[in-house]
């Protein structure tokens, strides 16, 4: 369904150093990969480039052989509608209910109200928040907010799922549960990339691990990607 390829991608922030240095990685379609590395290694930057909330300083990023670095601005919304993203800082609407937050991608995609309700409830029950759908997101614990973000990322059955520290605030049982959810999406063909520094969890999952350090790939289970 969706193949992702970073070709010699460098990202330099103004006034900062290089968050990514000449990174080349391929994620074949329908695979699930963990992106790991110390804090500040460049994991979030990596995912933001894929979301096109940032653009690389050098290099190309291909999604299904289309260079998304060159994607015209007017095509970005349609591109993002096919992505599901869990953000490290949640990005929820504080003034809206849990339900409305999760419904957002479906409303944006123009889905009918009945279908929206069905899909939202399915996603919420999957993350165990069905009984909190009417609550405002401010009233939730950090872990609950994280799960709302996860429900919102999967509700539109994205072709690519990007998750930035999705289990950062969850206990081990819930973390396992969320990973199983991602795995289920992967099993139906979704390309999944999860950034996490929970080594224990990702080792237990048994998927491919790409490790970043100071903006460079230092370890990749898939040896074809190792840039040494």
């Amino acid at each position: 369904m969706s193949k992702i390829e970073f070709q010699r991608v460098t990202k330099r922030f103004e006034g900062g150093g290089e968050a990514l240095k000449d990174v080349s990685v391929v994620f074949p379609e329908g695979t699930m990969t963990f992106l790991t590395g110390h804090s500040g290694a460049g994991k979030s930057t990596f995912l933001r480039l894929l979301l096109r909330t940032e653009s690389p300083t050098r290099g190309q990023i291909f999604v299904n052989d289309v260079n998304i670095v060159k994607l015209p601005v007017r095509k970005i919304p349609a591109y993002r509608q096919n992505l599901g993203a869990v953000f490290q800082d949640h990005h929820l609407l504080a003034e809206r209910s849990v339900y409305e937050n999760v419904a957002l991608p479906l409303k944006v995609a123009g889905m009918r109200e009945q279908d929206v309700a069905r899909r939202v409830r399915a996603a919420l029950s999957r993350v165990g928040l069905l009984e909190k759908e009417r609550l405002g997101t401010r009233a939730l614990s950090t872990g609950e907010q994280q799960r709302v973000g996860i429900a919102r990322a999967v509700v539109n059955r994205p072709k690519v799922l990007l998750a930035d520290e999705p289990t950062g605030n969850l206990d081990p049982d819930l973390s396992r549960d969320i990973m199983t959810l991602f795995e289920q999406f992967n099993q139906v063909g979704t390309t999944v990339i999860v950034a996490s520094h929970d080594r224990e969890l990702i080792d237990a999952m048994g998927f491919r691990i790409v490790e970043l350090a100071s903006g460079g790939v230092i370890r990749d289970d898939d040896s074809t990607n190792l840039d040494k």
Partner: peptide, 13 residues
């Protein structure tokens, strides 16, 4: 904030 989130989930201008 809402506009930023809307953009992230692919809302058009």
């Amino acid at each position: 904030e809402e506009i930023k989130v809307l953009k992230l989930v692919g809302a058009t201008n």
